[in-house]
């Protein structure tokens, strides 16, 4: 018996390898239920500390995975919330437009701003709607605040609008309180003014509306309020500075006033006058 132990001790490396190999082969060839019971026994004895560590590690891994999933979800929800907020803002704007349309005596064609003149101040915009919505050149464009400008070129689905900020734009206006008529104009697109006689009844805060003269804008459309009056070195006229009611930096939804019949007949009249020898 002793020689066996001596032999095993002498060849302990090979013996260990043989034992481990035999144990492994026994486990491999053992029936499945026995494999499971051995695995269960080992899991709850020798490998129990590892089991605990692995459990914690898996929890940590799950926390990381959940964190990643939640981050993705938060990003998606934030994007959705942003979209919904934008939709809510649009809803408010459109509600205002609907109210505006219901209280406005003219036929309105809603249009959305899709392009802007890159120069500052902006002088023209491109809006949706063209001949497809029966728009024509020289139709007034307004929004809920007041007069925006007029169409100057109409294409099939888009229209080019000249804003009142364009220095070449002129609008016949009237001080609503004193019925003083003048020409609304600008030299730089930022400062708007009209000239009127020195003795005219104009005061800061007076409302300025379109006069209806000129054939494009109907009377009574709001343009702005009198901001300042200067009469420097001019005995005849004073300069009335007007703050426009429309914020031209934030134009999104506008409406075209479908006044084509009046304008068309007026233009035909003008054309016929022009053709007379």
């Amino acid at each position: 018996m002793q020689w066996i132990f001596r032999f095993l001790l002498q060849h302990r490396t090979i013996t260990t390898l043989a034992i481990t190999v035999m144990l492994s082969l026994w486990m491999i060839n053992a029936p499945r239920p026995m494999q499971l019971s051995v695995a269960r026994a080992l899991t709850f004895t020798v490998f129990y500390p590892f089991q605990l560590v692995l459990l914690q590690a898996n929890r940590v891994r799950n926390i990381f995975a959940e964190n990643k999933r939640l981050t993705r979800q938060v990003t998606a929800l934030t994007t959705e919330v942003m979209g919904l907020r934008e939709a809510a803002r649009e809803n408010v704007r459109l509600h205002e437009l609907v109210n505006f349309e219901s209280t406005f005596p003219y036929a309105l064609v809603p249009a959305r701003v899709v392009g802007r003149d890159p120069a500052y101040p902006c002088r023209s915009i491109v809006v949706t709607g063209g001949t497809d919505k029966k728009l024509q050149a020289y139709m007034p464009i307004v929004n809920v605040s007041g007069v925006v400008g007029r169409t100057i070129a109409v294409f099939s689905h888009l229209s080019l609008v000249q804003l009142v900020t364009d220095p070449s734009s002129r609008i016949s206006v009237m001080i609503a309180r004193g019925r003083v008529v003048g020409i609304f104009e600008t030299e730089n697109g930022r400062d708007f003014f009209m000239r009127c006689r020195t003795h005219a009844d104009v005061a800061p805060g007076d409302t300025v509306v379109t006069s209806g003269l000129g054939g494009i804008y109907p009377p009574g459309l709001l343009l702005g309020r009198v901001a300042q009056i200067t009469d420097r070195n001019d005995p005849l006229f004073k300069k009335v500075f007007i703050k426009p009611a429309v914020d031209f930096d934030y134009l999104e939804d506008v409406c075209a006033l479908r006044l084509a019949p009046q304008w068309a007949s007026f233009r035909q009249e003008l054309d016929s006058l022009g053709r007379k020898p």
């Binding site: 190999v21 492994s24 053992a30």
Partner: peptide
């Protein structure tokens, strides 16, 4: 053997390979 316990494979194959 530890790897075998946490794998859905034959019990003992990794033990044999690793030893």
């Amino acid at each position: 053997l530890g790897q075998d316990l946490y794998a859905t494979q034959l019990l003992g194959q990794n033990a044999l390979g690793a030893s």
